[in-house]
Design a protein around this nucleic acid. Sequence first.
DNA 1: CAAATTCTTGTAAATTTTTTACAAAGTGGA
DNA 2: TCCACTTTGTAAAAAATTTACAAGAATTTG
Lengths: 283, 283
Amino acid sequence: MKPAQLTQVIVDKIPSMRKSEAKVANLVLQNPLAMVEKRIVDIAEDADVSEPTVVRFCRAIGCKGFQDFKLSLAQQLAASPSFGQIAVKDSDSTKELSQKVFDSTVDSLLKVRDNLNLKNIDKAIRKLNEAGRVEFYGFGASAAVAADAQHKFFRLRINSVCYSDPHLQNMSASSLGKEDVVIAISQSGRTQALLDSIKLVQKQRGTVIGIAPSFSPVAKQSDIALEIDAEEEFQIFTPLSSRIAQLTIIDTLTIGVAQKKGDDLRDHLKRLQTGLKSLRCNH
Amino acid sequence: MKPAQLTQVIVDKIPSMRKSEAKVANLVLQNPLAMVEKRIVDIAEDADVSEPTVVRFCRAIGCKGFQDFKLSLAQQLAASPSFGQIAVKDSDSTKELSQKVFDSTVDSLLKVRDNLNLKNIDKAIRKLNEAGRVEFYGFGASAAVAADAQHKFFRLRINSVCYSDPHLQNMSASSLGKEDVVIAISQSGRTQALLDSIKLVQKQRGTVIGIAPSFSPVAKQSDIALEIDAEEEFQIFTPLSSRIAQLTIIDTLTIGVAQKKGDDLRDHLKRLQTGLKSLRCNH
DNA sequence: CAAATTCTTGTAAATTTTTTACAAAGTGGA
DNA sequence: TCCACTTTGTAAAAAATTTACAAGAATTTG
């Protein structure tokens, strides 16, 4: 496994820290990269605290000591080099630009990975495996995610459809039963039409798996909430990173279900691939 | 900046090393990962040399001292994780499963990032920025990617559509002109119908940007090829990682074009966001 | 509101770890 | 074999980290 996101751990633990430890934490977050070549005395001086406080800070975030802290931090930064300075400037070259886009995507994937609610993923996989019909609902940017998800579940030989039209959603939702599952996808977690559909599904006693930000109405309303809190590095555009995170969560569900279905499914997929071959160019 | 691959530097310098320094070098190469948590005394003992010899070894390969060596090594190892055993076993728990899915996605993103053809990305951004119409073509799993891409370009106020039906593709392709651009997306790079559409576009003197594996017919036929060679960790399923890589490349193009469009666009996006607010639930 | 308790922080000392200085051992050429 | 030079290890010094403890702040309780 890759090193967990140390910077994320630091952010999470700041509230429970002592005042002077928090000073160190803030210094580190301000410029993680600079820490790597500092000694304990330098950091103590810069943060205006004593050396033992720095050690206490290291222990507080789960490291064995100062060297261990530095090493973990260095490893995280090496894995995603431009952490903390990902904002795209107008002056960036194509090289810098593409690196930033890839790095920020990696960053948010790691962040989401470390905050997964495994219990709910497990529940979701179990439920999907036993489901009658599986429907995917999403609007706007999430419509493409829903379509992608539907395509994957279809390949697993699961009866699945995808609706990104509120009327079709409602009509279909009304026809669901208690063994059916709906996966509701939303970047904002506040789309009113989606909430309406969710309620309709629940009225029919269907199960709703929500993929949305924590504490959002969609997450709260869902029976099983898979929460995603990827900060978007590129604010003004349509969400980029969080959408990739959504897809990856769906991948996890897909593979989880496939694992449960076992060998039986494997044969089916092989046959499917053979079918596709005829559509291909062979030179 | 530090040399990219420390282990490579070590290999290169072994011939010019003293006998006991070479002992250390071999120990390090044998298991680089293990070095990270050792102290100088441990390494000295394991290599059967004295501690100063270890320090001399560190200096010989261009490091400032022992700590510097350890840090550099750790960084290299973190940056290029052993692309090893990610295959999912039937016995995997949900935790292991989701970690593997996320990690393998991260791995392929990093791999693709390091193999990007920047010149072509640059060309593509330039072309897209000047384009009249932009169309996205893709079938199967790539249809969702195309839909997602269309959605993003639409937000950039670029005249864009998406077709995942061969007839519509052909009809539309025939109506394109030389200032128009088509982005053709394919996981396999060998879909015959897509190749046909590409040829039609080129007959009309339109530009085709292909997102497909290296050396594939689609890549070869495209005017600007953006090649993606993500190994799929989960063989039997529909492609997972390479699709994420495709999306991220498209993100790069999107941001690149947005950057070129500048402030003008920023206002437009703000207005768009305000428009969407009315569709949201506010509690 | 003050006394007592607990929690936080820094000082100084101890320990660990790394680095340097130097001397011993080895190597090769005359 | 002897001399000059290189290589390597020992031991001491220096540097860096960690611990122990006490002073001071904050908080609770009578």
